[in-house]
Each structure stands twice: as structure tokens, then as C-alpha cells.
């Protein structure tokens, strides 16, 4: 399983034709204390780059874009009661949903960990 990142700071952990999705530590830090994660309905179809979910902190709201195309097959509903997981463990416990990928080749357009770290430095 490998982790990939987008320029909008989502991550995708790809395992075969499945990918877990969440937001990066950098994004979680920038947002501040997360108060709400709006998860999509299971079965929702998205194309890469489309709005997939939304996240709110006290003073900010932002959309989460689909890092890859596919269908939502699982959501992490523990985030409803404990959105603080996004701050505490953004890249582990606070995975948001799982996509069944329709085009696994899209992974090629994402950054690996090293590339993402370099990207963050360039900001």
C-alpha cells in the first residue's frame, strides 16, 4: 500500500483498486481545530478533482476533492462524534472514506510522499 498526495492536500492510500482518502497533516494544521466533517453518501460516484466531502473548523470551511475517480464504498462515521481525530491523527485514524477506483492509472498524476514534502516547502 502506498500513500499519494494532491496539491489540495488530500491523501490517498491505494491498495489495488481501493483507496482510503483523508487530508494531510499540513492541511489539518492549517485548518485549526476541526469541528465537523461532512461525509458523502455511500455509493456516490466522483471524478478526480470533484468535490467529495467538506470539512469545517471554527473559522474556516473547505471542500475535499476526490484525489482519484471512483465510487464511495465506505465512510468513517466515527468522525461525526469525534471530528478532533482529524487534528490528532490526520493520516491514520482520521481516514474519511474509501473509494473503489474506476481508473487506478490516475495515481500517476499524484505526488508521492517525497514530492509532496518538496511541494510543501515550495509554498
Amino acid at each position: 500500500m502506498s500513500i499519494y498526495f494532491t496539491k489540495e492536500h488530500e491523501w490517498a492510500k491505494v491498495n489495488g483498486n481501493l483507496a482510503q482518502v483523508g487530508i494531510s497533516e499540513h492541511a489539518a494544521h492549517e485548518l485549526g481545530d476541526v469541528t465537523f466533517v461532512e461525509l458523502p453518501a455511500i455509493g456516490k460516484q466522483v471524478k478526480q478533482g470533484e468535490v467529495l466531502a467538506a470539512i469545517e473548523s471554527v473559522k474556516a470551511a473547505s471542500d475535499i476533492y476526490a484525489p482519484l475517480s471512483g465510487k464511495v464504498v465506505k465512510v468513517n462515521s466515527t468522525l461525526d462524534a469525534t471530528p478532533e481525530q482529524v487534528n490528532e491523527s490526520p493520516e491514520q485514524a482520521a481516514w474519511m472514506l474509501e473509494l473503489e477506483l474506476s481508473d487506478p492509472a490516475e495515481v500517476g498524476s499524484l505526488m508521492n510522499k517525497e514530492q509532496y514534502d518538496a511541494y510543501l516547502k515550495s509554498l
Partner: peptide, 13 residues
């Protein structure tokens, strides 16, 4: 509270 619903943060949404 819940200001992230409001225009000064969410603008057109």
C-alpha cells in the same frame, strides 16, 4: 458559533 455556515467564511456556499 457554527460560523463556518455563514457568508463571511463560506461565501457563495
Amino acid at each position: 458559533t457554527l460560523q463556518a455556515r455563514e457568508q463571511h467564511i463560506k461565501r457563495h456556499k
